[in-house]
Design a protein around this nucleic acid. Structure first.
Lengths: 151, 151
DNA sequence: CCGAAGTTCCGTTAAATTATCGGAAAAATA
DNA sequence: TATTTTTCCGATAATTTAACGGAACTTCGG
């Protein structure tokens, strides 16, 4: 029978790789008291199970000239929901699109270099419904998933 | 004089590494028509410049038993802002904390396994102010930063 | 226009990392 | 308790990265 739960070592591996996905697996192994091959096996299993869906570079938006983050809520009529979803996802500067419950149907996260760009985006989005835009002043780093997974 | 702008090759490197941060640099180089050492040099420069701030594993929340995502807005009085920021960032299940302009001071993103857990979190957060909670029904994948950087 | 300085690239090779064994220990199964 | 399965380790082969030296190309000042 194939084990399909995450044990403490798996959690530690996820934490390590979330912190630095390019950390050598031998180093990950050292942290958790496992050999490199054993660690490698576990990582492969985590990937196959889908617990790890990939690895990405963390890009610094500010260093890339995208210093403004904004949260945009959109309220559309029901018929517009599907087209809006796709349209939003295709828009440059839009980095997240969530459909959700509540007064507003959508929440978008956007990164822009200038207020003018934000204006342009808001104008485009407004064709789908009523928008409420908030500028992000500061994003606080969080602890990570570790505690959530264990709790 | 040290070059400090991103050219087309840098952008391509960022896109490749954002798609898969563990892609061999030789493979990245093949994509953009550069040798492995040249690619390696550019990546190192991107890291030093801060364009790449790190590499992380993409964890599948659902596969990890955290199938519910919620967006929580919080409106606090001004004196509560600093303590709230820290408290929110320390809470398990909270994966993003943004302070922002507008009616509500904060936007949180949380991942939970059950409605009961969400209830518990909302109750805790509500000690800081008025909360508005929305369940995320679906998150649409977006194109990525590429177009934003080039646009 | 020309040389010096600086940057970026390549090919080669050394160093580091990962994948692949065979086999032992541990755990689950019957 | 015997059997099967899982997970681990150590050793080693294959792959990947880092570290050269030197060539091509730019930039900058005379």
């Amino acid at each position: 029978m194939m084990r399909n739960e995450l044990d403490r070592l798996d959690i530690s591996i996820l934490e390590a790789l979330q912190e630095n996905a390019r950390m050598p697996l031998s180093e990950v192994g050292r942290r958790i008291g496992l050999s490199q091959p054993a660690t490698s096996e576990r990582v492969k299993r985590l990937e196959e199970r889908g617990a790890i869906s990939g690895y990405g570079a963390r890009l610094d938006a500010a260093a890339l000239g995208l210093g403004m983050m904004a949260i945009i809520r959109v309220k559309t009529i029901h018929e517009q929901i599907q087209p809006a979803l796709r349209a939003f996802a295709d828009m440059p500067h839009v980095i997240e699109v969530h459909r959700m419950t509540g007064e507003d149907c959508f929440l978008l996260k956007v990164l822009v270099p200038t207020p003018e760009q934000l204006e342009s985006i808001v104008d485009t989005i407004a064709r789908f419904g009523a928008v409420t835009t908030s500028l992000v002043l500061r994003s606080e780093p969080v602890k990570g998933l570790g505690k959530a997974l264990l709790g």
